[in-house]
């Protein structure tokens, strides 16, 4: 974590990493993402040597993209149950954290609202979001008085604050909130990511499935760091000797890592979150996917 602070030349003062994360690294990550995505998509066409006529429409392929999701799960269920559990934990709970936890929704709502100049573009997600974790953590004093009372730490752009989270979001989850909250989902997602890391290390060390590149590890470690810093930000872990003495810097680091992640996506395996569907669409180019 220290190298991040040095890299951006921030002081170790209370708010600086947060400011850098939100105002510099995150937007830079978005910018790199846009160029990276253009580069990655164009590579399919620049690197190709023969054009192939499309045989099945994108709609058909998209449908197939959805219906084919269970196939690999079925194939690996008996022989490799770990990879299935890891994948489900990671994808479902991470997605849950990103689209259900109130503070994330308000953050995305603000960011997309600014980018596309629309107010409340994510209004529909407010209705399923869980505010309780954030506010109750505050009520329990876990967030520390500093963050809330100053407002500025959590609200430098006027985007959100604790009160806003609790009043702008809804919690329809009732007793399910025991599971559907940022902490539990974050921990389950973390279990998935650690599972990925451990199985990959085991496979590489034993030679059973030696297929990893260094990028694969960078990617997984980055994801793990995002979850850890998110939890640390929420609970205000106190590890002063790391140079991150307070909650604001945890948030800063969290946001900076998310920015780095977003920028890294087009250059990494993370691209499969888009590439999956693009690929199913392109599948019709060269092969006999029109069944008869």
């Amino acid at each position: 974590m220290l190298p991040v602070i040095f890299a951006i030349d921030a002081s170790l003062g209370s708010d600086s990493l947060y400011w850098w994360g939100l105002n510099v690294i995150f937007p830079l990550g978005l910018l790199i993402f846009v160029f990276g995505a253009i580069y990655r998509i164009s590579r399919y066409f620049l690197g190709r040597r023969v054009p192939s006529p499309a045989l099945a429409g994108f709609g058909t392929q998209f449908k197939e993209g959805v219906s084919a999701i269970p196939t690999p799960f079925g194939a690996a269920a008996k022989r490799d149950p770990f990879i299935i559990v890891e994948t489900i934990f990671w994808h479902i709970f991470m997605l849950g954290v990103v689209v259900i936890v109130g503070i994330h929704i308000l953050a995305w709502n603000y960011i997309f609202g600014q980018i596309f100049s629309v107010s409340n573009p994510l209004w529909f997600l407010f209705k399923i979001s869980t505010p309780e974790q954030f506010t109750s953590a505050y009520q329990l004093g876990l967030l520390g008085s500093n963050s809330y009372s100053h407002g500025g730490i959590l609200n430098p752009l006027g985007a959100w604050n604790s009160a806003e989270v609790s009043t702008s979001t809804f919690d329809p989850w009732s007793f399910l909130a025991v599971l559907v909250n940022g902490t539990v989902m974050g921990l389950l997602a973390m279990a998935g990511i650690l599972g990925y890391l451990i199985t990959r290390i085991m496979d590489d060390v034993t030679g059973h499935k030696r297929l990893s590149s260094s990028g694969d590890y960078v990617f997984l470690i980055l994801l793990a760091a995002i979850v850890i810093t998110g939890l640390a930000a929420m609970y205000d872990f106190q590890i002063p000797y790391l140079g991150i003495p307070n909650q604001a810097n945890w948030y800063g680091l969290h946001i900076a890592l998310v920015g780095a992640f977003i920028g890294y996506v087009p250059f990494s395996k993370g691209w499969h979150m888009f590439g999956y569907y693009i690929g199913k669409g392109m599948r019709g180019y060269g092969y006999g996917r029109k069944r008869r």
Partner: peptide, 19 residues
């Protein structure tokens, strides 16, 4: 010399999950 866009996609997208 005969890679199609789909082939390039396939080369690049493999996550090496091993399934």
């Amino acid at each position: 010399d005969e890679l199609s866009p789909y082939d390039v996609w396939g080369l690049q997208e493999c996550m090496r999950c091993g399934i």
